Computed example of a mutant assay.
Amino acid sequence: MRIVVVGANGTTGQEVVTQALAAGHEVVGAVRRPEALSHIKGVKVAKIDLSDAGTLSTAMQGADVVISTLGHGGIGAAMKFTTLYSDSTRTIRTAMRAAGVKRIVVLSSGGTVDNDMAPGFYTRLLRRLLINTYTDMARMETILEESPDLEWTSVRLTYLRKGPTQPFLAQEGKLDRGNFQIHFVDAARFIVDELTAREWINAHPVLGYDKGAKAFSNSTTSTLA
C-alpha cells in the first residue's frame, strides 16, 4: 500500500513509519519539518501545512490510506485548550476528498468517554487534567462519524509508554478490564496490522494490556494519548 502518515515525526508516528516500511508498504511522512525524518531510511517526505488542505492533498496523491498520528507531545501542552485534533481532521478530510482517498486511521484516546472500569489514577487525575485534549479528540471522532464517504478507524490509546511488544487487548469503545496502558510499539503494530486486516472499519478500538501482563520497568518514560 501507499500510506501517508500525517505527523510522522512524533514517537508514535515514527514507530508507525518504521513498522509500515518493514511490512513492505510505501510510506510518505507528511510533516512540517522534513528534517525530522531524515534518520529513517526508505520513507518519502512531504512538507505540509496543516492549515492548507492543498499541501496535504498533494502529499496524498495515489495513497491508499492516511494515518494521523498528530499529538501535542507532552502532558503540559495537552492540558491546555486545543482544537488541534478537530481542525486538522477537517483539513485532512478535505484533502482526502480532493485526492480521492477513502481510508483514514487516527490516534484518539480512551479518555474521550467515561469508563467506570478505568483505574482511579486515570479517572480522578489524568482524565481531569487532560479533559481539554480529550474533548477535542471527541470532536475529531464526531467529524469522522459524520463522514459517510470515509472508512475510518479511531484508535483510542490508553496510557502510552515505551517498552517491548507484548499481547494486548483491543475492544470497541472502552476497555472492560486491564491496566489501561499500551506501549508505542504495540500501538503502531495494531495500526499497521489493521491496514490489511480491515477489522475495525468505522470503529473505535481501545488498546491496553491485561492485568496479567508483564510488569513495566521503572525506567520507561510515558505520555498520554
Score class of each variant (00 low, 15 high):
A36L: 07
A36I: 00
H39A: 15
H39L: 06
H39Y: 07
I40E: 06
G42K: 04
G42M: 10
V43S: 02
K47Y: 04
I48C: 14
L50T: 01
L50W: 05
L50Q: 07
S51K: 14
S51E: 11
S51W: 00
T55N: 13
T55M: 14
S57V: 04
S57E: 15
A59N: 09
Q61N: 15
G62C: 14
A63C: 08
A63R: 06
V65H: 12
V66S: 08
I67C: 12
L70C: 11
L70N: 06
H72K: 13
G73N: 08
G73S: 09
I75Q: 06
A78R: 01
A78Y: 04
F81Q: 15
T82E: 14
T83R: 15
Y85R: 01
Y85A: 06
S86M: 07
S86F: 08
S86D: 05
S88P: 01
R90D: 10
T91M: 09
T94P: 00
M96L: 05
A99E: 07
V101F: 00
V101A: 00
K102A: 13
R103C: 05
I104G: 02
I104A: 03
V106T: 12
S108Y: 05
S109P: 05
G110T: 07
G111Y: 09
T112P: 01
V113W: 05
N115W: 02
N115L: 05
D116K: 14
M117I: 00
G120W: 14
G120N: 14
G120C: 11
F121D: 12
F121P: 01
F121Y: 14
T123R: 15
T123E: 13
R124S: 15
R124W: 12
R124I: 04
L125W: 13
L126G: 01
R128G: 08
R128P: 01
T133F: 09
Y134G: 03
T135P: 00
D136L: 12
M137I: 07
A138Y: 07
R139V: 09
R139Y: 10
M140N: 11
E141Y: 10
T142I: 07
T142D: 11
I143C: 02
L144E: 11
E145A: 15
E146I: 00
S147F: 04
S147K: 03
